[in-house]
Amino acid sequence: MTITQLNYVLAIAEHKNFTKAAEKCFVTQPTLSTQIQKLEDELDILIFDRSKKPIELTDVGRKIVHQAKNIVDESERIQDIVDQQKGFIGGEFRLGIIPTVMPTLLPMFLKAFIKKYPKVKLKIEELTTEEIITRINDGHLDAAIAATPLVLESIKERVLYYEPFVGYIPNDHRLKDKKKIDVSDLDINDMLLLEDGHCFRDGVINLCKAFKTHQDDQFQLESGSIETLIKLSNEGLGMTLLPYLNTMDLNEKMSKQLHHFNEPTPAREVSIIYHKNELKMQIIDALHDVISGIIRGAIAFHNVEIISPLSK
């Protein structure tokens, strides 16, 4: 039995197809099939039910895949241990970022990071918090940038910054004359929200939920992007809340629609998160230092109240 064979097993289990698995592993399909057959012969069992379309794992195959993940993950950590010992900061690093952070934060730090650490090959994906947690636990991500606290036993969190919420209020809205707003001014029923699945949406709902609501609104509107929320608000369809970094690139006319909160300012906590057994700590430390250093000049708020991103 070899690590290579176990990698082939995992690839087939993921893609449910020998040809696609071979492409992922950069080998020919006959080579992959031969190695799987050798492994099954050695173990005297069938890992895959080839009569099913797509291919399915047998009962014992599911148990083997679970163990194979652990073995492959641990074998890959040997190189991580060596890199740490040598102080080497390089190699592939898989990073997930939530959609409400990616457009604003990534342009701020990416160029500086790759210039300072040219041997690190960042593979960045935009993913929801739920997808990030699954991929970190499955070993498909090394780390992620997400709103916290998440309070998960398997995942560690290191705070990068606190990002205040800012009201974006159209000229015909009931709060348009207030220079600064209070949390008690908010009404979830005249608020434009991100669609379900975004942790920033859950933060806004958690912020607003304790206050009275009106039940006579004609519609409730949700969107998949903050940019769309701004455009809808400009059409007079309601107010919305923005993460502070999203306000920095607004033009002069749009900036007049911004209303900051009285202190303590509601804010979200943004952290780099990773599995408690993660070994690529030298790259995580590098990311944390670069991002923290850059963001310090952009966000100068201190008296904030952290709003949970967890759906309640």
Rank of each mutant, 00 (worst) to 15 (best):
N303W: 05
D59A: 07
I226D: 01
G139H: 14
T34I: 11
H214R: 00
V166G: 12
M102Q: 15
I132T: 05
Q29G: 12
K24G: 12
K312M: 12
T213G: 00
L160M: 02
G91Y: 09
A147T: 13
I78T: 13
I3T: 10
Y274Q: 04
R135I: 07
D196V: 11
L192Q: 02
I97H: 08
P309M: 02
D182W: 11
P149K: 05
D202E: 09
D177M: 15
P243N: 13
K63A: 08
E40P: 08
G197V: 08
T265L: 10
E23L: 14
P99S: 04
E222T: 03
I230D: 12
F26D: 14
I284A: 09
L6F: 13
Q218V: 01
A267W: 07
Q67Y: 10
S184P: 12
V204P: 01
D285H: 15
I295Q: 12
L160D: 04
S225H: 10
P99G: 05
T240F: 01
L194K: 08
S308M: 03
D177H: 15
I299D: 14
E227F: 07
A146D: 05
D80R: 13
A22I: 10
G297Y: 11
I78M: 13
K176E: 08
L229P: 06
D182A: 15
H173N: 01
K123P: 05
